[in-house]
Nucleic acid binder design. Sequence first.
DNA 1: CCTATAGCCTGACGGC
DNA 2: TGCCGTCAGGCTATAG
Length: 265
Amino acid sequence: MPELPDVETFKRYIDSTALHQKISGLEVKDKQVVGPVSFDDLEQALAGYTLERTRRHGKYLFVQINSGRWLLMHFGMTGRLKYFKNPDTDPEYDQLRINFSDGYHLAYVSPRKLGEVSLVEDVDEFLKEQQLGPDALDADFDWAAFEEAFAGRRGMLKPALMNQHIMAGVGNVYSDEIMFQMRLHPRTQISALDSDTLKEVYQTMHRVLEMAIDRQANPNRFPDDYLIPHREMDADCPDCGGKVDRVQVSGRSAYYCPSCQRRPS
DNA sequence: CCTATAGCCTGACGGC
DNA sequence: TGCCGTCAGGCTATAG
């Protein structure tokens, strides 16, 4: 779930639910998702305070506490958020729960526990330490910046789109969609693309990510000509009616249509 | 620099 | 039903 459009959707979810309410406490089911800070540190940083605003960079979500510090959330492969009041609707696999004085709860749900909840003092400093690239949708990350980051690189386009040090936010699923929209084979080398094509990649990336945010990252609402709702073995290609196939690209499964996305010669 | 591999964790699903 | 293999939307460390 959690690539840029999903995390942006989580951000808006928090914006519309959990801000400006006093936090009464914190509960954990599994401390593994907390860190590198301790649970006690996290609870002390939150209890009695309020959440004031959110900021997203790539797949990271930051929520500012009214002390000035930031709650960091990363969702791994399976993380999500759920805001609820009735304990009966307590979601399964909620590893961490923030309780509010008005009786509501914000759950960080993560079945595979590959995500992380932590604290940071300074977001920009954190991004620098992590050596994260610019957010894929940042206004400053325009075509010129994209070209600078990608043109002339060796290697394949898809792994580069997913490389968070080059650009933050795109993962396996949305890189597949960008490749499909461009009708490029998943193993296409960057060196095989001319400048105009690379510019189309940039524009396609914007179109795909913005569309997904607009539809709350819910594939059921995606346009008919998108691959993502058909992204499984032997599904029908939304364009040619061929069958979707899978290849390994830098250790991940890339789904694509072999007849629409020809292997470069 | 770039790629492949393994590992972190655990659940869902299909086949027998 | 139970067991087993495969797969899974992230990221890091390591080796070639």
